[in-house]
Structures are given as C-alpha cells and as structure tokens.
C-alpha cells in the first residue's frame, strides 16, 4: 500500500506539472485570443473565431492525439510526449479562457472606458488599473469552473502516454486486480479540487469589498 501511495504521489506531481504549466501559458494567452476575437480587423476575428470553434467543438482527447502525432506525419519529426501534452492543453484552454475573458471585458460598462479617457489615462493604464481588476472580479466564478475542469482533464494526458496520476492508478489497478487504486486516485483529485475551489472562494471574498 505504501509503495502504491508513493507511485501515485509521483503521478500526482506529473498531473500538477500539466496543471500549472497549462495555466501559466493559457491564462495570459487567453487574453491575446480574446483580443483577437474582439478586434475590428475582420480576418483576425474570423481566424480567432475558427480556432475557438475547433477547440470547443472537438474532444480534447483528439486534440492531444493530433498535437502528438501530427508533427510526425506531416514533417517526419517527433517530439517529447510531455511537451505535446502541454501544447495541446494550452491551445485548448486558451480558447476557453478567451471566451471567459471576452464575456468579462464586454460586461464592463462603456462609461468606465470613457471616464478613464476623459481623465487622461493612457490606454495601457486604463486596461491594467481601471478595467482588468473589475474584469477579474466578474469572471472569477467562471474561471473557477474552468480551472476545476482542468484538474480533472489532466487525466487525459495518459492518452499519449504521459504517466500522470490516473495512468498510474490504472496500471496499479490491473497489476493488483483491484479497483482500490482508482478510488484512491479519485480522492487525490478531490483534494486537489477542494484546494482549488477554496482558493477561488478566498479570492472572491477578497474582491468582495466593492460592488
């Protein structure tokens, strides 16, 4: 049992790596995509829209396979499966985050931009100091949902052979002819998501000082 827990902790570290690396890249990239979807330049808007449609319209598991195998079939180069996994997750999650950001940005009253403009704030200052904090407050619940989904989605990384938590559990399960490891993994996921949801509740409380 002790060996099993140790193995699963190792798998958890891989899962957490996928989780944090995905957030690290897709949270900022989502903003770029959101800007692309909101731009007045039509080709960029169409392209961004097409990209978001594909990412949301096809299974993540398929996207993982695509990003791992496509370079090989198209250019004859293969690369590290972990890298492929991160690329797929980042590209997928950026699309979802972009839509959350867009909803937040569009929910801010136009008067906020106008007041900032009349007071002489620069565009960058207006965005980072006036608009962004208000956007973050509004999108926190939706963002929390998505981040919790990401914790569970990391289990898909095994599709291209990344030895994350669920893969370790499944391997152990078939080796020991027992479903126990699977349920232990379930507890692991639950704990991770409990922490995530607590953090989001905390953040919402912290930003609850104004309406």
């Amino acid at each position: 049992m002790q060996g099993l827990i140790l193995q699963m902790l190792e798998g958890t570290i891989v899962s957490l790596k996928v989780f944090f690396l995905t957030l690290l890249f897709s949270l900022p990239l989502g903003f770029v995509v959101a800007k692309g979807k909101m731009t007045r330049i039509k080709p960029i808007r169409w392209l961004t829209d097409f990209y978001i449609q594909i990412m949301r319209g096809t299974p993540l598991i398929l996207q993982l396979i695509f990003f791992y195998f496509a370079p090989f079939y198209l250019f004859g180069v293969s690369y590290d499966r972990f890298t492929a996994c991160i690329v797929a997750f980042v590209v997928n999650y950026s699309a979802y985050f972009a839509e959350i950001y867009r909803s937040g940005l569009q929910s801010i009253d136009r008067g906020q931009h106008e007041a900032a403009k009349v007071l002489g704030f620069s565009k960058a200052y207006t965005f980072f100091v006036i608009i962004l904090p208000q956007v973050i407050k509004r999108i926190l619940p939706a963002l929390g949902n998505e981040v919790i989904t990401l914790v569970k989605d990391t289990a898909l990384a095994q599709t291209i052979g990344v030895a994350e938590l669920f893969r370790v559990a499944q391997t152990a399960s078939s080796r020991e002819f027992s479903t126990v490891p699977i349920f232990v993994a379930g507890v692991f996921y639950f704990i991770m998501n409990y922490i995530v949801s607590r953090l989001f509740t905390l953040a919402e409380k912290k930003l609850g000082y104004y309406r």
Binding site: D109, Q112, A115, K137
Partner: peptide, 28 residues
C-alpha cells in the same frame, strides 16, 4: 484642459472615493 461629468457618474467602483479623485492627479 477639458473635464466632463457624465449622466451615469462612471466612478471607478473598485477605488475608494479618495482614490477616485487622486488617481488621475497622480498617474496623469
């Protein structure tokens, strides 16, 4: 040289009253 007061106030909701009035003085 021009200031504008809006129909809908458009105060910055995440700033205190004081900061609403000091922010542009300081940043601009």
């Amino acid at each position: 040289m021009t200031g504008l007061v809006f129909q809908s106030f458009n105060l910055f909701p995440h700033f205190t009253v004081l900061r609403n009035i000091t922010e542009a003085q300081r940043a601009v």
